[in-house]
Simulated scan of single mutants.
Amino acid sequence: MIVVAGESLIDLVPQGTGTPLPPLLPRLGGGPYNTAVALGRLGTRTGFCSRVSTDGFGMALLAGLRSAGVDVSLVERGPEPTTLAVAAIGADGSAGYGFYAEGSADRLFQLPPPLPDAVRAVAFGTCSLVLEPGASAYEALLRRESGRGLFTLLDPNIRPGLIPDAAAYRERFRGWLPDVSLLKLSADDARWLGGTPSGPGGPAAVVLTRGAAGMTVRTRGGLEVSVPAAPVTVADTIGAGDTVNAALLHGLAARDALSAEALAALDRAAWEEILAFAARAAAITCSRPGAESPFAHELDG
């Protein structure tokens, strides 16, 4: 099983250009949530570890996980409201967000007991590693499970509006890297963070996504492999990076490569296949409004 740890929320996505304001359509979302759903749709045994509200939005979020085949036994529940994210869609389909997260359920996540023995990997990212007090609990989970030998993926998915002290966050981010097996960054993330981490003591591999320019992996052993983006007519980019996370984990699990040693052993051909699969999956997500990731049958062949 692969566990995804982090927030779930409701994206409020503008529809058209209504006046004086466009109507907002609620969609299930949150980077870790989208990653878990995408993994489940690809057929990977997946669990979600978070705190989810008992309100109507929270019930819908859990139903979305279950419909994708995601195990929710690690989900904490609470009466606090669900976080809301108001999306702004650019002319190129790119999405920006404003967050309403004060006092929300996912911020009150508490460190769970050690994860079940069946868990092979844990993925982290986005708001859950920023908003306290939950951020410290997720950080403790990352360090503990890495220390137990589990494979870890980190996608910081930077949301600058949520980070009050950029320098402090960058320092904290660097402190996570020794416990990260695979780091996924967008080009925007890398610029904001001041570059792509490299060298000993950090992740075994770093995947950099560059939108229409494709994606690249750089391994600790010095291998660098790039693939082009899959051609697509973009509806919006909501959930595209989360789909990449899921596709990477799915591809690595299929090759029994969920360890730093196995990552190091992957050759150019294997990485080309994994990255191309992730690019195709992300393209399908971009072709649909909202974070609607593909099912396995849509990627056959």
Rank of each mutant, 00 (worst) to 15 (best):
V225T: 13
V70S: 05
H250V: 00
L39S: 10
Y100R: 15
T44W: 00
V86C: 10
P294H: 09
A278D: 06
P133Y: 01
T126G: 10
G222M: 06
A118N: 12
I2T: 08
G301N: 11
V72E: 15
F173S: 02
E298Y: 00
P231W: 00
L42G: 13
L275V: 00
G64I: 12
L299K: 07
V227K: 14
A205D: 06
V180R: 01
A36P: 11
A168G: 13
N157H: 06
F277K: 08
L266E: 13
L185C: 04
M215Q: 15
A247D: 09
D189Q: 05
P32V: 06
A95T: 11
G214Y: 04
P114Q: 13
R144P: 01
T19M: 15
R148I: 01
A123N: 10
L21P: 07
D55Y: 05
A291L: 02
T83N: 14
T233F: 00
D155L: 02
P200V: 02
A187H: 09
G69T: 04
G290W: 11
P112Y: 06
D71R: 09
S73K: 04
G222R: 06
N245K: 07
L150I: 01
A269Q: 15
E7W: 05
T44Y: 00
D236K: 06
F99R: 15
E145S: 13
T233M: 09
R107T: 14
G195A: 05
L21C: 14
T152V: 08
K184F: 03
G103K: 14
L182S: 08
G78V: 00
G40K: 02
L129V: 07
T19K: 15
V206W: 02
G29Q: 05
E273D: 15
L65W: 02
L162N: 11
G18H: 04
R41N: 03
I274S: 06
N34Y: 01
G103C: 12
L111Q: 10
G64W: 00
S293L: 11
D117R: 14
P164F: 03
G29L: 03
E261C: 06
E132K: 05
R220T: 02
G175R: 10
F151R: 13
A190R: 02
A247F: 03
E7Y: 06
M215I: 00
L154K: 03
A230C: 11
P164D: 15
A247P: 09
S259C: 10
A282R: 13
A257M: 12
L39K: 09
R41Y: 01
W271E: 10
R268Q: 14
V86F: 09
D55S: 10
L208S: 04
I238D: 07
P14Q: 08
T233D: 15
P203M: 05
S293C: 13
L208V: 13
F173G: 03
V207I: 10
G175I: 01
V244W: 04
F151T: 14
V207R: 04
G93S: 09
S50K: 12
D300H: 12
L129K: 03
A212W: 01
P112R: 07
G149L: 07
R51Q: 11
A269S: 15
P113N: 11
V207S: 03
G239W: 02
T54M: 11
D55T: 03
